[in-house]
């Protein structure tokens, strides 16, 4: 029988719970100050997104591949999976463009501009996705959250963001338990209407629990002195290597922009 929506949902919830602990990388990126990493990769993503020349984008993709390769086998495998997934999806999206874009014709109805634009899109999306994933793969979440505090993100926004990442796990757990209980009670195939009701009531119950939880959390925060304004602690020290890396990121981003966009 076809996989039930309950099974699919349970699998999604489980995958998300697993995914969270996946920053199992090593190498220089892992040791880099998260602030430098965040700003550096953001610059590179911007450069890749701005590049108008395929060779420059390809060069940036090579840089991403190299960084992934030196970040340990776990990170490398994750990046390979990412390339496959992104490649399939973007490849399929870009495929009709081969034929549909007006321009000088090549063989089989493919136009040159079509080929050019499909390739540009594919390489660009692979490259930006690589950089974005490298941040998450080589930085533990809490360090990433702390790094955000340094980019003039309002402290309250950072606290909300950090708390939301925390409560995702609580709610994922609650949702999983609820759906597992339902699966245990219902064996066999249910009529569509009932299944829809079941999914919606699951979501509604989760919403009720969420609102209740937010009330309890509010109590817990107030009891320890929270009055609406967040206070956070700065714990980073930039080493010489971090500064050097920051310079390197800056130079690479500048070069990519120079050749890929401004020239």
């Amino acid at each position: 029988m076809r996989r039930d929506f309950l099974e699919k949902t349970l699998r999604n919830l489980g995958d998300a719970l697993d995914e969270a602990g996946r920053a199992e990388s090593s190498g220089p990126l892992r040791r880099l100050d998260p602030r430098v990493k965040l700003a550096g990769f953001f610059g590179l993503i911007l450069a890749a997104a701005s590049s108008r020349h395929l060779p420059v984008t390809l060069g940036l993709w090579g840089l991403g591949a190299t960084l992934a390769a030196v970040s340990g086998p776990g990170a490398w495998r994750a990046i390979l999976r990412l390339w496959a997934g992104v490649g399939l999806l973007t490849g399929a999206v870009a495929l009709p463009a081969l034929f549909l874009t007006p321009g000088p014709a090549l063989d089989w109805g493919v136009t040159q501009t079509g080929l050019q634009s499909a390739l540009t899109l594919l390489v660009r999306v692979e490259t930006t996705a690589t950089f974005a994933s490298l941040i998450a793969l080589t930085t533990p979440w809490p360090a990433l959250l702390k790094a955000l505090r340094h980019f003039h993100v309002p402290a309250l926004a950072v606290v909300i963001f950090a708390m939301a990442t925390r409560f995702i796990f609580v709610l994922l757990g609650i949702a999983r338990d609820a759906f597992e209980a339902r699966r245990a009670r219902h064996v066999g195939h249910l009529p569509g209407k009932l299944r829809r009701q079941m999914a919606a009531s699951g979501a509604a119950m989760l919403l009720g629990k969420s609102i209740q939880l937010s009330g309890e959390v509010y109590d817990a925060m107030r009891a320890r002195g929270f009055r609406g304004e967040a206070v956070t602690l700065d714990e980073f020290r930039c080493s010489r290597a971090d500064w050097a890396a920051a310079g390197l990121f800056l130079a690479l981003t500048g070069a990519a922009l120079e050749w890929g966009c401004w020239r």
Binding site: W141, P142, L145, A162, M163, T165, R166, F167, V170, L213, E216, V217, D219, A220, M221, A223, R224, G225, F226, R227, V231, T232, L233
Partner: peptide, 29 residues
Amino acid sequence: VGVVFQNPDAQLFNATVFDEVAFGPLQMG
């Protein structure tokens, strides 16, 4: 007056154990 709540998921709302323990002192200024 310190309160330990029944639901640890509500009590522990920070991203790490260290942040959790440091939360009260930080709010105290």
